[in-house]
Design a protein around this nucleic acid. Structure first.
Lengths: 132, 132
DNA sequence: TGACTTTTACTACATCTGTAGTAAATTATA
DNA sequence: TATAATTTACTACAGATGTAGTAAAAGTCA
């Protein structure tokens, strides 16, 4: 399951608190995000189409609930990144992380330890059952 | 600079060897990827538009060369991921990594060390000058 | 109950992405 | 130097994404 930028924003709100109404989500979006109410509805409908959320009615009002877990969404986003940008292996990703300038020396050292025994080509597992 | 899926494929070829012709790139794409020659040209033109590659002529033939570095492309892809999926902080990402089932116990242990002194909210730096 | 406010159900529309096709110009080749 | 193969320069077009708008139905409140 791939999420778009806007879908991540909504899902982040939903994971934080659910079930939620469109209005409720609107209230918990980051302050810079100023979407029309109908925009939020449109995006939620698309998420429901994809099977990432479930929509049900309470009286006349729609409530939304995540089906896709945060865990799984993260896993597949990370796999996508690793596959496209890091040769499909965690090793290069970790190498990259240890060169990040805002790591502390101790963190860097610990990461180096982790990489030492990195087997070849981890993370090449091609999206098999990443949903739910 | 954001790259799309197809753009990553081309850039990966270009970083590996450049300058390169469209035909040459076609030859170095992964075998499952079977794009028409003109598709590759279209994508390269879009990359040139974005300023990710430079296109120049050798006689009648176009040669391409990356302008965006692999390093920077990786950095910004990682930042995007961290921002949208991991609360804008490396900590949760690392937590996630240590729970990956195909880590060795020693790696896991080393990563745990790295996380211990994780400062709050790293990686929240909002895409400021991530190009070039 | 009449007048707002909210919600729903649809529709809209520009841009971006994936994936070419065509015609004309250039280059290689028999 | 015809003919074939390659490259260029443009155009095309469907599906995904971002971002709403409108009209009608339902709910709320004076």
């Amino acid at each position: 399951m791939r999420l778009t930028d806007t879908e991540w924003q909504l899902m982040n709100c939903l994971w934080e608190k659910h079930p939620a109404t469109a209005r409720g989500i609107a209230g918990r979006l980051p302050p810079q995000v100023k979407w029309a109410y109908t925009t939020i509805r449109t995006l939620l409908a698309r998420l429901a189409d994809k099977g990432a959320v479930r929509e049900y009615k309470e009286g006349n009002t729609s409530l939304y609930e995540p089906i896709l877990t945060r865990e799984n969404a993260r896993r597949s986003a990370l796999m996508t990144l690793v596959n496209q940008a890091f040769d499909g292996a965690y090793g290069p990703l970790m190498h990259f992380l240890i060169n990040d300038p805002n790591l502390t020396p101790r963190q860097r050292q610990a990461l180096e330890e982790a990489i030492k025994e990195q087997p070849e080509k981890q993370g090449e597992t091609e999206n098999g059952g990443d949903n739910q």
